[in-house]
Amino acid sequence: MATMSSGSAFEVDGAQWQSVSPKLVPVRQIGVAIGLGIPLVASVVVAIFTTPAVWAAPAVFGILLVWLLWLVPRQVRAIRYAELEDELLIRKGVLFRSMVVVPYGRMQYVDVDAGPIARSMGIAQVQLHTASAQSDASIPGLPEAEAARLRDQLSARGEARLAGL
């Protein structure tokens, strides 16, 4: 039992896993670059005008930036989702893996979100909300057509299998 390969623990019988769009990689990388690039530039400027010891800050930001740029493609490849008869499955994470099982009948509403960068790439995020704040059922990086199809599909299935609270 202990020798079982760890990957199969996240396998589910009858689930056909689908990947998300590879366009999510540049979208997230641009986000990371903006988020870390601004403090990086700012700390470089500060370091130039003050003591050399301050160069530690841009070094940390730089390392973090490179690491995240390397990590993002692997994270995106790890995002999988599967539509079962009664439940939606979502798998995420490389180092810290997670899987969530959301019954369609538990759905309260569906959100489709797209930020400016994602919109320019033609991808969107579909998020399923249940009555629990803990069910993190979001699928980022879906092509717009697929996001719309999934949204309608989830709404229809949720209606058909609607359960009380």
Binding site: S6, A9, F96, R97, S98, M99, V100, T130, Q134, S135
Partner: peptide, 8 residues
């Protein structure tokens, strides 16, 4: 049960 989750 609203939904189920596993993490590793």
């Amino acid at each position: 049960i609203q939904s189920l989750g596993v993490t590793q």
